[in-house]
């Protein structure tokens, strides 16, 4: 079972490798990936350095090219694929069908992973991508229950990778327009959800407010934990309830430590840690805990239990310091 960790920069990449990552994933410094934030990601030179470091450590490096090319600007995405092939990364993580086609036809030996942004949740979708583009692996959207992951694992034509820890996207990824609905920019079209330039925090009287492109998505007392400034974690009222509440999801992070044995039994090949936008300290902390957990499990699967100090360490770096099993657990749904 591979531990796959995020790298927003070289510092994160190094701590991930030192703390026990089996593989790292990263993106280029432009809108070809869905974490296109200022100060984050890799130039071609830094990518070459990252690839060298990773391969010297005997680990794997995956390049994320998971946004959708804009008409007339496709070259930027094609160049990213060419660069990845020249650099010799171990796999590409992609969602757009035309990019999968480009990579598969030009670089048939370069492994392809289907990004979560492709929103592939079922045997039909996986069969199509396997048949047409020979993908090796799918990153499953965070909408499947553990039972559904297990069922899919019995019939899938490709390896399964799941999100194990990190910020919880509650919609079928790659098909969520909530960010562009409020800001004009979505992960698919602009490379990020709730882009920073549209986020404004302000204190008004005894309250703190979160505004996204001027829309008030949350408001609370100054001592309360505020969620990430995304539409799905806001507090709203309805026509039948005037008390504002988290109608979609409250500030919380995904943590599947307790599911590790089940994920292993479902032959999940890779556990993904979310958070290319997070600090090296986060990457180090999370990688270290998950390395311990996976090693503990592999050492004696039958004896595995989640250790309290792991959960505590992870809660500290979690949104709202609260964690959930998300859609893996049917009652969450």
């Amino acid at each position: 079972m591979e531990l796959l960790c995020p790298a927003g920069n070289l510092a994160s990449l190094k701590v991930a490798l030192n703390a026990g990552a089996d593989a790292v994933y990263l993106g280029l410094k432009n809108d070809t990936n869905a974490r296109s934030f200022a100060g984050l990601n890799f130039t071609p030179e830094k990518l070459a350095q990252a690839a060298k470091l990773t391969q010297q450590a005997g680990k794997k490096i995956f390049l994320t090219i998971n946004t959708f090319p804009k008409p007339g600007e496709e070259q930027r995405w094609y160049q990213a694929i060419d660069l990845a092939a020249d650099t010799g990364v171990d796999a590409l993580i992609m969602a757009d069908l035309s990019l999968l086609d480009y990579a598969h036809s030009r670089y048939p030996h370069l492994p392809l992973h289907l990004s979560v942004q492709a929103s592939a949740t079922n045997l039909g979708a996986l069969s199509l991508y396997k048949q047409e583009f020979n993908i090796d692996r799918v990153v499953l959207p965070r909408v499947l229950s553990m039972k559904q992951v297990r069922d899919l694992s019995k019939v899938t034509p490709v390896d399964l990778e799941v999100f194990a820890f990190g910020s919880l996207c509650i919609m079928a990824e790659g098909r969520c327009h909530l960010s562009s609905y409020v800001t004009g920019q979505s992960p698919n079209t602009g490379g990020s959800c709730s882009p920073a330039k549209h986020v404004r925090w302000q204190d008004v009287g005894d309250n703190q407010q979160t505004r996204l492109n001027d829309v008030l998505i949350d408001q609370s007392g100054k001592d309360e934990q505020m969620g990430y400034p995304v539409v799905c974690k806001g507090r709203y009222t309805t026509s039948d309830s005037q008390e504002a509440s988290h109608l979609l999801e409250s500030p919380t992070s995904l943590n599947t430590l307790s599911l590790l044995p089940e994920l292993a039994k479902a032959r999940v090949v890779s556990l993904k840690i979310e958070g290319r936008q997070r600090s090296p300290a986060y990457v180090e902390q999370v990688t270290r805990v998950w390395r311990q957990a996976i090693d503990t499990y592999l050492n004696d699967p039958a004896a595995y239990t989640t250790q309290a100090q792991w959960d505590q360490a992870l809660a500290k770096v979690s949104e709202g310091q609260v964690t959930t099993l998300g859609a893996y657990e049917r009652t969450w749904q």
Partner: peptide, 13 residues
């Protein structure tokens, strides 16, 4: 239609 989730927001509400 803007998004789809595993969660039923109406039932939860």
């Amino acid at each position: 239609p803007l998004a789809h989730s595993a969660r039923c927001f109406t039932a939860r509400h």
